[in-house]
Amino acid sequence: MPMVQIDKLVKEYDGLLAVDNLDLELETGVVLGLVGPNGAGKTTTLRCLSGIIPPTSGRILVDGNDLEKERVPARQVLAFVPDEPRLFEDLTVRDHLAVIARLYGVADGRQRGAELLARFDLSDREDSYPSELSRGMKQKLMIALALLHRPRLLILDEPLTGLDPAAMRRMKRTLQEMAREGMAVMVSSHMLHLVEEICDDILILQKGRKIVEGSLAEIRARLPELDASADLEEIFMHATGGDDLP
């Protein structure tokens, strides 16, 4: 059973079609990169998949649970890191960890929280409020909070924005380790070299539609007009029509 199964997902905003009949399956242990030009529907797809916004139509199964009908078990296994780190202004870093641990029932929440803070170099910021953290630190805290309950599906929207090079490197390693341990990871980014580096599969979206999906090798095979050594940037430009631009 795939970790994520999306059937004919449609999302409309005031008549604007943000996601158009998207079908997708994501197996455990796989890192899927979601790329596409601005307005392609990447964030909307991720927000639908994490249960933040309800789809207009279609069905999303997470670990076999319908995200709409079996809300709690479906959400128990997933974690979402939004593109903008939105934290509670009146809660310290420690308070955030305590709330999330309780919400997901993480028995070793304190210990795991301390480990995650150490991993993201935030150990000395336990008593800081979000307003006292830089954007990068907030982003790291969001990721630490997402990992606290050992999710089986991790959804990240532009996760590396604002991170310093060392944190970026650590983040990449963490994602790969998580996948190796059996977590399904879905990550959207405009950093194509990053996606190429850490993702097993790529999904290119344009105007809410799936343009192409598969591993880099599979995609290359499907696009014979491209060079056999074409990197993701070339594939992306070709698939989205960016090549045609002057």
Binding site: L91, T92, R94, A98, V99, I100, R102, L103, G109, Y129
Partner: peptide, 24 residues
Amino acid sequence: RRRQPFPLPPVGLPEVAIVWKNLL
């Protein structure tokens, strides 16, 4: 900064976490 309305153990009713957060 470490003061809390009441101690919040990591396991138990998840709603309590929201009450705790809001009282904080």
